[in-house]
Design a protein around this nucleic acid. Structure first.
Lengths: 341, 341
DNA sequence: GCGAGAATGGCAAGCGGTTTCCGGAAAGCG
DNA sequence: CGCTTTCCGGAAACCGCTTGCCATTCTCGC
């Protein structure tokens, strides 16, 4: 693989000149020399070694994305947005699936810092664990101290700029809507309790109940993993505890898929017997046979804005945290409460 | 951020010694010195700069994954496998979504080479375009010439080790199964014609027809993008051309979702009026209200083995191309042909 | 005609590690 | 006891690119 020296030798100039031609330096280079250098670059098929550039300039043009699981459609969509925006600016992105494991997350963050990524994006909600948060915060602050850009794309204990959506309003709106349809016994399939997103979404649901003067019944809440299986299991226990529920709100679409599956397995019709709502509006949601009522989250958008924020920070432009609005999307999986079963 | 020199200074040794202690060199270091160095590393919280290491050793411990679209559940799953295996070996992975665009793919490959990735994994099927293939092959060969490891996870024109699945057998088995149920007018919703995977899957379908002595009718084939929308549109035209079809095989699950959606929209019941089968067995497939009959592809497994293959090549271990078996998974979306509509 | 300043280009010192080569001390050998 | 090995550590040369600083030449302005 040709190096800059090879080009320099071929063009009969010094490496410095070649570098200046290629990296758009302010240092003047005569048009003839420039042309000659470019011709030699072409001839040799020279492409600068990013590693060496990175060492010299302390810029790697890489961004690390910490997600909970890239195979979760939510995160896949976010990462796609991130990647598209990064590519446009000449950056590459590393994916890191932490599986919501504090140890894994921390070791990924440290690895990324060793790789000297320019930016770090936390796509998933923070893990609620004081000791861990403190440790992570220390590492992250160190990183920022050396010029690293950090952005969060979900509620997080880190004090960094964030691009989030209004999770609270989302579940509140959904619950309001179901209450408005006449439902009173609304189950809530929540995510893992140690995730901040879970708590915020649960809070939105409770707020709507409070507004409507409906007593909050802890029996109507069941937690599970943010997976299809998690949703199926959770709704199963919910149904056993509260056979009288007429609607279920799932903390995200993937869980809602599990809920739908479990209900179908039990012969309960949606929405005639049980209404179901999700959260996120992943691509599949609209394509189910019973299209899912859910809250639209602009995930791709969040990913793009996240990347933009990183680039802005790196460029020294001011960055403000933003909260994007969400929107209730009413589809076929919800209806007024039906006859008792 | 502390450097190796800082550690050396603090420990009162030369940088060389610190390096030897940390990178497990064969060069002997006395136990006392070693301990002292490690203590200082600890004290300063020193972590080696991967960029500098990379420049010195010509190993970056990174792998580039070229996928068609990370937000497609198929690729997300593959990348997850890749990532998990890579992590275990201390590697990081770059994701690159080419959207099946030759230009984008090529520029990603070149960028990754500039970043001096150790390995390159092509997760998607190759794009059938002679000029492009030649150009890509040249670049890839150059990369391999410098010690880069390249692996393909789908049929591809590149002459590199591959971990693939038996796509041909997959659609053949599905078609055989449907023929066995008594279907004769079986629509095929194919992927983009310029993708190798599309062609192989179509060939499998044709092989089964041939075996069964059923004439192949080109009208029963419609191509579209490997997306839900693509599947919906394709089946729509198919139905207009051939209202007599009793079953539809989609070239992948994502398209099958679109097919199901479109059929539901037209009031056609599955499987009573039309049987539907997919390919891939993405996670959602089993969780539809009418669970999808499909061909199980071990995507996560393919991802892992792909990473393993890269690591093996880098370690100089022999690597052989492998073809993993697929398996027909019969679920609720298929049944013998029903009464005419 | 001459000095100032702009235009060009090269030298060399990094960036932060790794690794080859070398030297001194200690240990093993006949 | 002298000599060869082995053990341990350091000096310094990279890896490939960037950039501050300096030298030369040229162009003006007066």
């Amino acid at each position: 693989m040709p190096s800059l020296r090879d080009v320099a030798r071929l063009a009969g100039v010094s490496p410095a000149t070649v570098s200046r031609v290629l990296s758009g330096s302010a240092h003047p280079v005569s048009p003839e020399t420039r042309a000659r250098v470019l011709r030699c670059v072409e001839r040799l098929g020279f492409r600068p070694n990013r590693v060496a550039q990175a060492l010299a300039t302390a810029r790697t043009y890489t961004i690390g994305a910490i997600v909970h699981d890239i195979s979760d459609p939510y995160f896949a969509e976010v990462v796609r947005g991130l990647e598209d925006e990064a590519r446009l600016a000449g950056y590459q992105v590393f994916v890191c699936s932490s599986d919501r494991d504090p140890g894994r997350e921390l070791s990924y963050v440290q690895a990324l810092i060793s790789y000297r990524v320019d930016g770090l994006v936390f796509a998933g909600g923070g893990i609620e664990d004081r000791a861990y948060q403190r440790e992570l915060a220390a590492v992250v602050e160190g990183f920022r101290g050396t010029g690293g850009a950090v952005v969060a794309l979900a509620p997080n204990a880190l004090r960094v700029p964030s691009i989030t959506v209004d999770n609270y309003a989302g579940t509140r709106d959904i619950a309001r809507y179901l209450l408005g349809l006449g439902h009173r016994r609304i189950g809530f399939v929540s995510g893992p309790p140690h995730l901040r997103t879970s708590r915020v979404r649960l809070a939105g649901y409770r707020a709507a109940l409070r507004e409507a003067g409906v007593r909050f019944d802890p029996d109507l809440v069941e937690t599970g993993w943010f997976t299809t299986e998690g949703g199926a299991k959770a709704v199963a226990s919910l149904l056993e505890r509260c056979p009288d529920l007429t609607a279920v709100v799932a903390a995200n679409d993937v869980m809602a898929f599990g809920v739908l599956h479990e209900l179908a397995g039990r012969g309960l019709r949606v929405p005639q017997e049980v209404s179901v709502a999700g959260f996120d509006d992943v691509q599949m949601a609209a394509f189910l046979q019973v299209p899912l009522t859910t809250v639209h989250m602009p995930m791709y958008q969040v990913g793009r804005e996240g990347a933009r924020a990183v680039l802005d920070i790196l460029a020294g432009r001011p960055v403000r945290s933003r909260r994007l609005p969400v929107q209730l999307v009413i589809r076929g999986s919800t209806a007024p409460p039906g006859r008792s079963r």
